[in-house]
Nucleic acid binder design. Structure first.
Lengths: 215, 215
DNA sequence: GCTAGGTAAATTGTATCCAATATCCGTGAT
DNA sequence: ATCACGGATATTGGATACAATTTACCTAGC
């Protein structure tokens, strides 16, 4: 399986996400196109197109003639995002349970295992990625592509803070347990339990993350 | 109140929306950048940046090295969009009722009147715009900007078909009545009634629109 | 007649260059 | 001392030119 050659804008987009995720670009900071383009070794055009994507996702704010700025997340924004996630993930999980097959369960169990493995290494970026794969594999089962797209946007908006969350060992341990519970609930085809555990999982997350923002 | 000079990409974005809305660009059709840029009298750069916005909104699909295509909406997509709207608008209306002031009610009544006026003229584009203003004025009262943003995306995705919907006189009459009911429910500060009427309003809409797509 | 390969045309992707705009700083007037 | 005005500078916005990729068509071979 050879990987297709990506366009420059796609590469730049991936790089930008990492920069934002790792905090190399801090929230509120202006993104100086010339400097970044040179740093990435590309011209400004693909960089700008990548920024437009992030603008659409709300990851950066755009002011005409002034430029792009990394989006800031107030404590109010954070709660709004999690409230919306609660609504939409409930829908996604409910639909997912209706569609789930034995094969899907195996796949998801496999992804849970990968989260565990990443957690063992302690690399925050790897944990974040594995965690995302796990959850979105479930959401995808809803077979509601637009719903999944909206969820991705909401997750992206808080990724920066979630990585801080993963930095704490106690959080990491709890996550693994909760993932197991989610898996159990899905195996039992229980909508109520699946949704409940997702809610718990999220509530724990928002509590820790808001502590980070407040602090 | 003088209007700021818009950047070219903003103008192009507005033009593109109209093109899609009016069906000058048909769903599924490729957007040939050179031709459109010439038609608009601009270079391809601002056109591409506008397209990237629409890509983020899901209004167009992008395939690297092949270009942008106007998004198609299957009957399944339509139902998904309306299902998501139901979830999110319920939340928005609930929050709105909690925040609404006398002043807000006057503003919304005024917007309802504008819809009525636009309906009298019969210009579909004007009706669409007025209708949007009315509904989003309500959603904005939720003071949940991200929620409003998601709703805008969902509305945009189906605007093409909604304009067909407005073309029928019977639909237009019913809309006006339903707007009045919504206004009454808001005045009474009733969450239950406000949500119920929004649901009714939407259900009538989806029924007509799906008839259009199916037919 | 049908398939495979290769070449040409069309279209998109990127880089470079120039124009337009906002911001910053200094000067002068009140 | 403070505010208003103006020009210099930095940064973004847009146009043009060129490179890369895909697609379609045509030819050769089976």
């Amino acid at each position: 399986m050879n990987t297709k050659p990506l366009t420059t804008q796609e590469e730049v987009l991936a790089l930008l996400r990492v920069e934002i995720l790792t905090g190399a670009l801090n929230p509120g900071q202006q993104i100086v196109q010339d400097a970044l383009a040179e740093k990435f070794g590309v011209s400004r055009v693909p960089l700008r197109e990548a920024l437009k994507i992030l603008e659409g996702e709300g990851q950066v704010a755009y002011h005409p003639h002034r430029g792009y700025f990394v989006a800031e997340l107030s404590i109010g924004d954070l709660h709004e995002v999690y409230r919306l996630r609660a609504l939409l993930e409930c829908e996604a999980v409910t639909a997912a349970v209706a569609n789930i097959t034995e094969r899907d369960l195996l796949t998801i169990a496999e992804l849970a295992k990968k989260v565990r493995k990443a957690t063992a290494t302690g690399e925050v970026l790897a944990i974040t990625a594995a965690n995302r794969s796990f959850h979105f594999a479930i959401f995808e089962l809803s077979e509601m592509p637009r719903l999944v797209r909206l969820l991705r946007q909401l997750w992206d908006a808080t990724d920066v803070y979630r990585s801080v969350y993963f930095a704490h060992a106690t959080n990491r341990d709890r996550i693994l347990l909760e993932h197991d519970e989610i898996l159990n609930a899905l195996s039992a085809r229980s909508v109520a339990l699946s949704v409940r555990w997702h809610d718990t999982h999220r509530d724990n997350s928002v509590a820790s993350v808001s502590a980070v923002i407040a602090g």
